[in-house]
Design a protein around this nucleic acid. Structure first.
Lengths: 356, 356
DNA sequence: ACGGGCGGTCGAATCGATTCGGGCGGCTCG
DNA sequence: CGAGCCGCCCGAATCGATTCGACCGCCCGT
């Protein structure tokens, strides 16, 4: 009795065949109530905890698990509210499947453990864009695993991509600033590459950029302000937003630049970055939006920020949910198509006409 | 050729037996380089993506997946930096296993999908304490799945519990305040129960409290200030901390109470709550620590907070790592024991002698 | 009273890989 | 030159459950 009992043991104990016992558990198939009850009683008596999920998934061909590839360290992904909302949406979208989420580590390659190369998943959602998406897609395609990408950049026809209007939305934010009269506008961008190079954005950095979202949003800003100086943040966080903003607003000694030498508005590529920009401005003694207008992106509620941020409200949760629903459709054998969501400009109290 | 090739197909294509092909893939066992290469070549030619993880895990008896039960909605867990750090630590601790993390939904009961009742996991880590832990433990014990709890309260001998000195640590924080001369101290607590009842803490609420951590930390404060008024926050967030603090510092109309009618210090049961307390104080025109001292708990760096919070630095990541290591030991058949970590009082710039 | 129909149960094949014992050559050493 | 040994590969059993087709009474209609 040391080993865990198997379905066969239960069946024997109940005096039925294994197949009948199986039917009694799965509920599908014709089994008389009396028999079912006897099987259940035998199971209880033997301490049988239900069919082994491993064996079941081998036979059924499905594991009931959906993988999520975060494309970066689990840790940093957890710090990004947008990713969290997206995860939340995915969980919601796949709810009808009753599947659990398996967090797959970034596809570094030589990590020895469970990766997309070798995980018992029925489908996978790739979040975020990076050069690795391509590689990941290849593996998944070879394994024949239905895949959905979120902001995955160009994927094949077989992989639906859920995205938003990054460029267009940012352009609308920039046009809002232009409408207010701003002429000198700076940009604080998300990371450009996997190395998270931070600092002023020059042609060289732009050239080797590998993060689709960053590029698209920068293009949107450049559509209105072609000459806008940009500074890349190392991560999408308040602190890195603050550091990036200081490069636009202060001199090397940390003193605020004279009003005519600094931008009157900053477009931040995420709300966390925008919050950091506001902190930097206030730290330098500037008022927001009096002396500096700030536009964010995402539409998250930054915990602790006491401003109603002007931002581009993106439906992160909806994106995740759409990805989850696409997964459900793919698993049902139905086609799923790419989908682009639209962000809406939310005008808060962090933008106003420039002082000069 | 529409179906995915199996190991047997590859073996046939390479002109070897299935067993040899298996050895060629797993690397273990004596296989000549020539044969191995031929098998790999055949695999490449057939588009074979490696052994099916389902079959492998059935045979091997291990799935390479460790489940994590968050005991609350995935969404809210993601918003708690301590949980995230803990997850991070777990990921680190189980790294030698090369296992992936499976997020299991709170054990609500009637959720139909993958739960701890039915998930292909080799081990499980239960995070957080709630009345449900008991139920979860029962299921896992029956399934014979090695389990480790974090702040799980009283578990059996077979389930190691990783915890910290909640009561003692809070007491030390309170003693620090007493040493500074504070006599009127308020407490902002974590939620008391699954319903997240918020507002002033009375005997009734305390009686039906089900969250171990909240109670222990409150006891620690009461050890020094038996009469301290307490207000429960709905969640561990800056905003709810702010709301709770307002109940201690302001009257119904939102105006600050006169200095002699309000506490000179507030003990918050988490750093997020503490940040909210500071926001509330500043909003009411009080200075920190001049007119209000604030002590937090956790020792996270609150993104955007411009104070060096006096807090009880708890090793969240270490806790997670210890849990992960306990999992590794359990899976290796070695015994793993409960472990209590110690928090250290970090004295920042948010505590000072009271003004009066 | 007899044949068809049907609900309920059982046998056996199957899912795909792993693993262990055995066997077959070839090489080495006496 | 022969026996022994070793390296490499194969066969077959196994992991535990699911599922499809077969089978067997029993009930009902005529």
């Amino acid at each position: 009795m040391t080993a865990r009992p198997t379905l066969a043991d239960v069946a024997a104990h109940a005096g039925v065949s294994a197949s009948t016992a199986s039917l009694a558990f799965s509920g599908s198939g014709p089994v008389s109530d009396a028999t079912k009850e006897r099987v259940l009683a035998a199971a209880a008596e033997l301490g049988y905890a239900g069919p082994d999920p491993r064996a079941r998934s081998l036979r059924r061909g499905r594991s009931g698990i959906v993988g999520v590839v975060l494309e970066e360290r689990v840790r940093s992904a957890f710090l990004d509210p947008v990713k969290i909302r997206t995860l939340d949406g995915i969980a919601d979208g796949i709810a009808p499947l009753g599947a659990a989420l398996l967090l797959l580590p970034f596809t570094g390659g030589e990590s020895e453990g469970a990766t997309i190369e070798d995980a018992p998943v029925d489908a996978v959602v790739l979040i975020g864009c990076s050069p690795r998406v391509e590689h990941s897609l290849e593996i998944l395609r070879r394994r024949g695993i239905p895949t959905v990408a979120i902001e995955g950049g160009p994927t094949g026809d077989d992989v639906p991509d859920i995205s938003i209007d990054n460029r267009d939305a940012t352009r609308r934010g920039a046009e809002h600033l232009r409408g207010l009269g701003h002429r000198d506008v700076g940009v604080v961008t998300l990371p450009f590459d996997a190395e998270r190079t931070s600092g002023p954005v020059d042609a060289a950095l732009e050239a080797r950029a590998s993060t689709q979202v960053t590029i698209e949003r920068l293009q949107g800003a450049r559509d209105v302000y072609p000459e806008a100086p940009a500074v890349a943040a190392a991560t999408s966080s308040i602190e890195d937003g603050r550091l990036a903003a200081l490069l636009l607003l202060a001199d090397a000694s940390g003193r605020a630049l004279p009003a005519e030498a600094r931008p009157t508005a900053i477009i931040a590529q995420s709300d966390l970055l925008a919050a950091g920009v506001i902190h930097a401005a206030e730290e330098l003694g500037m008022t927001v939006p009096g002396e500096l207008s700030v536009v964010g992106f995402d539409g998250i509620r930054v915990d602790g920020l006491r401003h109603d941020l002007t931002t581009l409200d993106q439906p992160s949760t909806d994106k995740g949910r759409a990805a989850g629903e696409a997964v459900v459709r793919l698993l049902a054998g139905e086609p799923a198509t790419s989908l682009a969501f639209t962000s809406t400009l939310h005008i808060g109290d962090t933008t106003a006409p420039p002082a000069r």
